[in-house]
Design a binder for these strands. Structure first.
Lengths: 242, 242
DNA sequence: AAGTGGTCTAGACCACTCT
DNA sequence: GAGTGGTCTAGACCACTTA
């Protein structure tokens, strides 16, 4: 759909790197080469390379060239907004989603604080457990502002809610803040998960914003300790140099 | 030192936003306004705004303008490569570093796997505890390739190693991969930290690379569960849209 | 219709690396 | 000196929002 040139080049290379067609350590064609090859201006080539660089596919070295990193093949994505379903499919694990509740309710007191709505708002509450290799190890509690998301069904909740939001409701998700911490397991955790002997859970609070900056979703993802992992790729940003 | 125009504008606005001088929700001057105001080209203005956007200070909306977000003031930095010292100073907490060891040793077996050096390499090992408000809650085990970092002293280890690397040794740190997980507390954890009743620790493995892509440092940061927090700001990257 | 940000161009000069 | 990536310019056209 997108006819953006720099996005096409980005996808071209990101796929070839992720598939292993272009090996780690390989030097990419120079910016001038790519300019000639694609018949476009150098700034457009640079936009594609910058995206590749930001997302951990390549690293650019002044005077030398752009080189493929080996971070990209494992643990993808290196941070970002990706749903559980995409995630487990990428890893290739057998996974299953159990939907406990899909309800339209007045906003719970504890949630109002996170969603910054007025206290009389209503939300869609979705509670799901993620079953990986036979064990329920993640409890997802999602809350959607019902003025943004008018309807949710059990069918949607058992599939990809994000696909529904983006394709059916045409909502543009634009950014999110995640806060990760470890907390005591609640009675609910113990009831809905296979917690084994663990007394604590990793809690990932996710605040998701739309294109117009409205905070429309709050998610609490509660992970059994031994099944939690988070990978983050960080580049020293120009802004942080002294 | 840096005369880059876009960095100057970035710093100008990032500081004014972080200090609260420019409130959340405020609309920034348009790109054309900034072009005129600074007497520079629009693409340069856009570079500054893009940095602000990436780092969670602003959000740009097509046809409307650039708006200040309120994420920036709390929990800084929103992901990134920042040392414990910078971190605690920013939060304003009373903190102290206890240096247990600063040694030049043959690379431990368990570390060689992470640092990808040959098995006969030597490393500088630094083991430190971080004391926050009277309790030792973080254990940092750092390993530096000694062919990159020839010397470390207890004095350097008790201050900011990063400042030493960048200012004294002129090393350019460029990117890092973090892997966060939860593991059983070891005997060492129990000995060197004030673990209280906790049986697990949050382990943050950090793989730090230089400008020329060499992996030169591996750090294991072991946090007491209740004192761990990680914040991540993620923008839906153009590359991820379908 | 005017203003906004998003994309793209065809140049230019610079600092750096390699030989 | 030739090649590389980093910065910057002065234009252009587009899609979107607001009035």
């Amino acid at each position: 759909m997108n006819t953006n040139i720099f996005l096409q080049i980005y996808h071209d290379y990101s796929e070839r790197i992720q598939s292993g067609e272009i090996a780690a350590g390989t030097k990419l064609p120079s910016e001038n080469d790519l300019t000639r090859e694609y018949g476009i201006s150098r700034e457009t080539v640079r936009k594609a390379l910058q995206l590749l660089s930001e997302n951990g596919f390549i690293h650019k070295i002044k005077g030398k060239g752009s080189f493929v990193l080996d971070l990209g093949r494992m643990n993808f994505p290196l941070s970002g907004l990706v749903s559980f379903k995409e995630m487990s499919e990428r890893i290739g694990r057998k996974s299953q989603t159990i939907v406990y509740t899909t309800e339209h309710i007045p906003i719970p007191h504890a949630v109002a604080r996170h969603l910054e709505t007025d206290k009389h708002a209503t939300v869609w509450q979705v509670i799901r457990a993620r079953n990986i290799e036979g064990e329920k190890v993640i409890l997802d509690k999602d809350y959607f502002r019902s003025d943004v998301v008018p309807l949710l069904t059990k069918e949607i909740a058992s599939g990809s809610i994000y696909a529904y939001l983006e394709n059916e409701l045409d909502l543009q998700i634009s950014y999110a803040k995640k806060v990760i911490s470890v907390e005591d397991a609640t009675a609910e955790d113990k009831e809905l998960l296979d917690l084994k002997q663990y007394t604590h859970v990793v809690v990932v609070r996710n605040y998701v914003h739309l294109e117009d900056t409205t905070l429309f979703q709050y998610t609490e993802s509660r992970h059994r300790l031994d099944k939690f992992q988070f990978v983050d790729f960080a580049r020293r940003s120009p802004g942080e140099e002294k």
